[in-house]
Design a protein around this nucleic acid. Structure first.
Length: 628
RNA sequence: UGGGGAUUGGUGUAACGGUAGCACGACUGACUCUGGAUCAGUUAGUCCAGGUUCGAAUCCUGGAUCCCCAGCCA
């Protein structure tokens, strides 16, 4: 299927290939072995890069084996789910590049709601309800009048078995009648449940008579008020996969303990059924195989929906699509390409070991993609004024040739203006340079990229602060274009923009959201937070505020420098270069030479440019300088 | 003496009884009109203890450590 260099199979691919060889799941009409996967999100939050791993895995498997991939919403809990989340999830899955049957490419723009081909667990509620009644009739389920608290107490503990309740022995007739009345809405929320009659002494707590249905008089985002009983995830999930003919039901590790329950439920329905449908209960239903893998953990960020929601609601970030967020929408707004996320998911592999992937791995995938595709332009992020003393006058402009992308000759070139007054990067000038500094310094000569060699003659300082406000240079007219006819070499090449023609831009420089690789590492953070509040006025004194601080101690690890907005200068023809590249999502991405990769933010207007830094370039000088 | 899962360089992932490989990182060097990219090289690993075997990351026994499970959440 793939022409990529052969990679060893991950453990799930090994299972699938063994299944295919054994013809375990039958075949498509054309004879190829059947492989069906799905991505089953609950629409109660935004997708993040951890979900991307699952999407790439499931879609990738279906794609690789010529199978089918479904996008299915697991919308079994109306009190937590919203249409806004449905829309964002569809847009994100589509943006990542997954395709499903019946999908429409018409509304392929992020945010445009179009759910053609998407399936919903809530559409199976009727079928599930019939199966529940079947279990009641088979004596495998009962209506329980216990309160949530009573159920919890009777469940026992990890080391002690639970106890049967009185309702467990109700007659089939009574159960059927009671369940019907539950369904009709005769009982109050929480007053009764339908439970599976399994084993209150099971070592697996999931098998201690789990709840199948609860009473919830709540409006469902798709079903409206059609239902007042809703299936529990454990009861519903296996059947959703069964109905869709999913062959490999891939989920994360924490559901491993639930697999015996899913198997029990399907087995209970199939009990008394036959392959040809000849028995009293009809035809056997499909029984998918569940396979569990380790979810993605990434350093310098958090991945739990709860924490992400807390960051949004607490105003610690600008929203779900804040470029510092690990959400798909955040990564997209930051300028990350779907291609690089797919490469990342491919490279991190799939296994059952619960580890942490280093952020550098993601960044490496992003750089690798952007290096190949992003057009180069010159922009000065922290401008320092430069005056060319021997440039004839301010009205003289020299238009020089610049290459749009050295990695892609087809991107061509453009003209950049050069004049008497320029801006260079503040970091590219040092009054007293350390050893090994190749950039501009008093008396030193550097090349201005695509332009001329210049030599620094003097500096102008702010008398009050001593800060260098202007650098004065002379240029060598013979070096036009960047090469010296006398063969003289220069160690440093720096980027620049001409002050007269430069465009203003707001540039948002992002760093990691958290200051520590592991945001949960709060041992010293909590201590720091405590000591930090001590000297201040109005330090919290109550036990409750202390407790609240401890509960969200990870917030103390937020990186205070995660966002810096700077006023930058960018060359006037930057867009001529930018438009030579095409991106599947229409986002404008460029490299600011020697600085990093940036994308045009949606806050931009005709008169205001706003760029987000996607990722920096590797900076071996900063690394070397940081060491000494 | 509750149950389930896991453990290979700094990080992740291969090797399925027969040379412990790959990627990212780190470090050297080469090259360079991006201190980018590229190229070459170096570093560093089988959780522990026994056993089986000509041979063990792999099989067996025992131990250690980590993760998950006591929602009418998913």
């Amino acid at each position: 299927m793939s022409d990529a260099p052969t990679r060893s199979l991950n453990f799930i691919e090994q299972i699938i290939e063994a299944d295919n060889a054994a013809k375990r799941w039958g075949a498509w009409p054309d004879g190829r072995p059947r492989v069906c996967t799905r991505f089953p999100p609950e629409p109660n939050g935004y997708l993040h890069i951890g979900h991307a791993k699952s999407i790439c895995l499931n879609f990738g498997l279906a794609d690789r084996y010529g199978g089918q991939f479904n996008l299915r919403f697991d919308d079994t809990n109306p009190v937590k789910e919203e249409q806004e989340y449905v829309d964002s999830i569809i847009a994100d899955v589509r943006w990542l590049g997954a395709r499903w049957p019946g999908m429409s490419d018409a509304a392929a723009k992020p945010g445009a709601p179009c759910d053609a081909g998407v399936v919903y667990a809530s559409d199976y509620f009727g079928q599930m309800c019939e199966w529940a009644i079947e279990l009641i009739k088979k004596g495998k389920a009962y209506v329980c009048d216990c309160t949530a608290e009573e159920i919890r107490r009777a469940r026992g503990t990890l080391t002690r078995p639970g106890a049967n309740c009185a309702h467990r022995e109700r007659t089939i007739h009574e159960n059927a009648e009671l369940f019907e009345r539950m369904r009709k809405g005769e009982f109050a929320d929480g007053s009764r449940t339908l439970r599976a009659k399994i084993d209150m002494a099971s070592a697996n707590l999931n098998l201690r008579d789990p709840v199948m249905y609860r009473i919830l008089h709540s409006e469902h985002h798709r079903q409206g008020d059609k239902w007042c009983i809703y299936p529990m995830y454990d009861w519903a999930h296996g059947f959703e996969d069964s109905i869709e003919g999913i062959t490999h039901s891939i989920c994360t590790l924490e559901f491993e303990n639930h697999r015996p329950l899913y198997d029990w439920f399907i087995g209970a329905v199939n009990d008394g059924r036959t392959a040809d449908g000849g028995g009293p209960w009809g035809k056997r239903i499909h029984h998918p195989q569940q396979i569990e893998f380790a979810r993605l953990n990434l350093s310098y960020t958090v991945m739990s929906k709860r924490k992400l929601l807390h960051l949004v609601k607490g105003g610690h970030v600008g929203g779900w699509d804040d470029p510092r967020m690990p959400t798909i929408s955040g990564l997209r707004r930051r300028g990350v390409t779907p291609e690089s996320i797919r490469t990342f998911c491919e490279q991190i592999g799939v296994a059952k070991f619960n580890g942490v992937i280093e952020l550098q791995k993601l960044e490496s995938c992003i750089r690798d993609d952007l290096n190949r595709r992003a057009p180069r332009v010159m922009a000065v992020v922290r401008p320092l004024k430069v005056v060319i003393e021997n440039w004839p006058d301010e009205s003289k402009i020299d238009w020089l040739d610049a290459v749009n992308n050295p990695e892609d000759p087809s991107a061509g070139g453009r003209k950049v203006p050069f004049g008497k007054v320029l801006y260079i990067e503040r970091d590219d000038f040092l009054e007293t340079p350390p050893k090994g500094y190749f950039r501009l310094a008093p008396g030193a000569e550097v090349r201005l990229r695509y332009a001329y060699f210049v030599r620094c003659t003097s500096v102008v300082k702010d008398p009050a602060t001593g800060e260098v406000t202007e650098v004065r240079c002379t240029y060598d007219p013979a070096t036009r274009g960047g090469d010296a006819p006398d063969g003289r070499k220069v160690k440093g090449t720096i980027h620049w923009v001409s002050a007269a023609q430069a465009l203003d831009a707001e540039v948002r420089l992002y760093e990691t959201l958290f200051a520590k690789p592991d945001p949960e590492d709060t041992d010293d953070a909590a201590a720091e937070a405590d000591s930090a509040t001590m000297p201040g006025a109005g330090a919290p004194t109550s036990a409750t505020s202390g407790g609240a601080a401890a509960a969200e101690a990870w917030l103390a690890n937020l990186n205070p420098n995660s966002l810096q907005k700077v006023a930058a200068k960018i060359e006037p023809n930057w867009h001529d270069a930018a438009k030579t590249a095409t991106w599947s999502d229409g986002i404008t991405r460029v490299q600011f030479e020697r600085v990093g990769y940036f994308c045009l933010d949606r806050d931009s207007t005709a008169s205001r440019l706003v760029f987000n830094r996607t990722v920096t370039l590797k900076d071996s000088w900063a690394k070397a300088a940081g060491k000494s």
